[in-house]
Simulated scan of single mutants.
Amino acid sequence: MGVTLIARFFGAPRVARRALSLGALIVTAVALVACDDANNLLQAASSENTARNFSVYALSGTSSALPAAYQFTSERLARPQLLTNGGVNFDVAFDLTSDNKVTLLPVRTVVPLPPAGVSSVGLLKSTTSFSALERAPDRGYAIDSTLVIGIGETVVLQLPGSGCFSGEPYYAKLVVDSIIVAQRRIVVGSLVNRNCGFRALTVGIPKN
């Protein structure tokens, strides 16, 4: 059988052989482009990374009218709640410990029985300062676990279920700038990369 196939190939018309060669060149070119991309992401970023500062209040001991959470995927403040469509309006809630440190509470630690569509959130404390941290790690995140941090400490977030077609997460970073204890208010700096799978955490249109 193998001899017959070889004979058929070399006996094929010249046009067919040219088509096969062209196809091989195309496959090779695509492979080279994919290998050249650090994340194997062939679609350019469309959303600009912007550094933001916001104030959020401790979940405990504050009025229900005050925001105590943040939805990084939409960059909106919220008071945690279940929505009428069965979803939630936040990714991470904030609280204060007895010694006035900040507790980060991923959504699944706040909602006892989260709807099936509520995604997990990964948190990773970084030893790099907020301004110097340029790229999110691709592993090491604690999933759906609370994390206590102090002023000046940086945390990287992995946000799956962000609406990306192939399931890639968004990545973000935050830092606690200050705590106004009398108001139970926390001032936070953040930056979110809302491009599917991109891990760059610098201001501007990311390249990776």
Score class of each variant (00 low, 15 high):
Tyr57Ala: 06
Leu147Met: 00
Arg14Ser: 15
Val3Asp: 13
Arg17Tyr: 06
Pro160Val: 01
Lys173Asn: 08
Ser98Gln: 06
Cys35Ala: 15
Ser166Val: 12
Ala38Asp: 14
Ser60Leu: 09
Ile149Trp: 05
Val33Ile: 12
Arg14Ala: 15
Val118Arg: 02
Ser46Leu: 14
Arg108Met: 04
Val188Ser: 09
Thr127Phe: 04
Ser190Leu: 07
Pro114Tyr: 05
Thr146Ile: 11
Lys125Leu: 05
Asn195Gln: 13
Tyr171Gly: 12
Leu113Asn: 09
Val175Arg: 03
Gly161Tyr: 00
Thr73Phe: 00
Val181His: 08
Arg18Ala: 14
Glu75Asp: 14
Val181Lys: 10
Gly204Tyr: 07
Val111Ile: 09
Arg14Asn: 15
Ala16Val: 13
Ser21Gln: 15
Phe10Asn: 10
Val30Pro: 13
Ile6Val: 11
Leu25His: 13
Ser178Lys: 15
Gly11Leu: 00
Ala34Met: 14
Pro112Arg: 00
Phe54Ala: 03
Leu147Trp: 02
Pro115Tyr: 00
Ser126Glu: 04
Pro114Cys: 01
Leu32Phe: 04
Leu66Glu: 01
Glu168Ala: 15
Val33Gln: 10
Ala68Gly: 10
Ala7Phe: 04
Ala58Val: 05
Val148Tyr: 03
Ala132Ser: 07
Arg8Tyr: 08
Phe90His: 05
Ile143Asp: 08
Lys125Arg: 05
Val181Trp: 07
Ile6Tyr: 07
